[in-house]
């Protein structure tokens, strides 16, 4: 343990929690599911932390459809997402697959959607899926609130663009769309493992079956989720057939992947193409 706690505080209201964060400054750390605490501790990133502020009781555990989108409370767990039939709809299916693919069941029982964003780990699947789905996040502090695109919240590995006195309260996904589907795929070494690389896709076709929009995200290719714009550039307004897929495969990834211990950039590039192809085909199948 590379930290010494003075107290573990479980506030009942958001205001109370925000005040604690404000008062203790860097000495307080938010804890939701708690699944990243060990990693932070081992990397000496909890030094100086004296208080854990547990946000479980702030009433942030919900999924509701509102006019401006689908709102998911920050402490909603992965298993609550997996078990909510809303997320098996094509528009949100990428999130369902990403959450379901996280092992183990015990982790899915406690890991939260807000925590997955705030931890900022590029090989974790849920943040990648959220970026693919154009998710936004609401962040609150005593100074007010801001709404950000999720992709703007990652600065680097375990380094989120969130200040110490802010709480991410909810994730907002766009409302369900027609002729739209999403998919998430990851390549792992073992059955339950972190991704070597992963692909999240959301496709919207127009009434004639041509591409209206494609959003593609690669995980573990860069230190933060990588939005592959090349796919949309090539495919926009076109009908997707084998030739087009081949063309896209030749062009991606548009960035040199980072090396990992068990996979070089060379390997990642090779398998990303395959993974993208398979994920795209699955997505299209859901629309038709």
């Amino acid at each position: 343990m590379h930290y010494e706690l003075k107290d573990y505080i479980k506030p009942k209201t958001l205001e109370e929690a925000l005040k604690l964060l404000h008062d203790y400054k860097g000495a307080a750390k938010i804890i939701a599911g708690g699944t990243v605490i060990h990693e932070l501790s081992e990397r000496n990133l909890l030094e100086g932390v004296e208080y854990f502020v547990d946000i479980e009781n702030l009433g942030l555990n919900y999924v509701r459809i509102e006019k401006d989108g689908l709102h998911i409370g920050a402490t909603t767990t992965f298993n609550q997402i997996v078990n909510n039939s809303l997320f098996t709809k094509p528009s949100y299916y990428a999130l369902y697959l990403a959450a379901k693919g996280v092992s183990s069941y015990q982790v899915r029982n406690v890991a939260t959607i807000g925590g997955s964003v705030c931890s900022s780990i590029s090989f974790l699947d849920v943040p990648n899926a959220l970026v693919a789905l154009n998710a936004k996040a609401k962040l609150v502090s005593l100074n007010g609130e801001r709404i950000e695109n999720v992709e703007n919240l990652f600065l680097g590995m375990l380094n989120p663009n969130i200040s110490e006195d802010e709480i991410l309260t909810e994730i907002i996904l766009p409302l369900e769309e027609t002729k739209t589907a999403s998919y998430y795929m990851k390549l792992t070494e073992r059955a339950f493992d972190y991704a070597i690389v992963s692909v999240g896709i959301k496709v919207k076709l127009n009434e004639n079956g041509y591409v209206e929009n494609i959003r593609t995200v690669f995980g573990n290719v860069q230190p933060t989720p990588y939005i592959e714009n090349k796919v949309y550039e090539i495919a926009k307004g076109k009908y997707i057939n084998e030739d087009l897929i081949k063309k896209i495969m030749e062009e991606i990834p548009s960035v040199e992947p980072i090396d990992s211990i068990n996979a070089s950039a060379w390997y990642k590039k090779k398998v990303l193409k395959v993974l993208f192809r398979d994920a795209l085909k699955e997505t299209l199948e859901m629309i038709s």
């Binding site: 070494e189 073992r190 059955a191 339950f192 493992d193 972190y194 211990i261 068990n262």
Partner: peptide, 16 residues
Amino acid sequence: ALNPNFADYKLIQHAD
């Protein structure tokens, strides 16, 4: 050592 832990040193899992 680059992977002296069970996240990066891969041991087989039951499902495999």
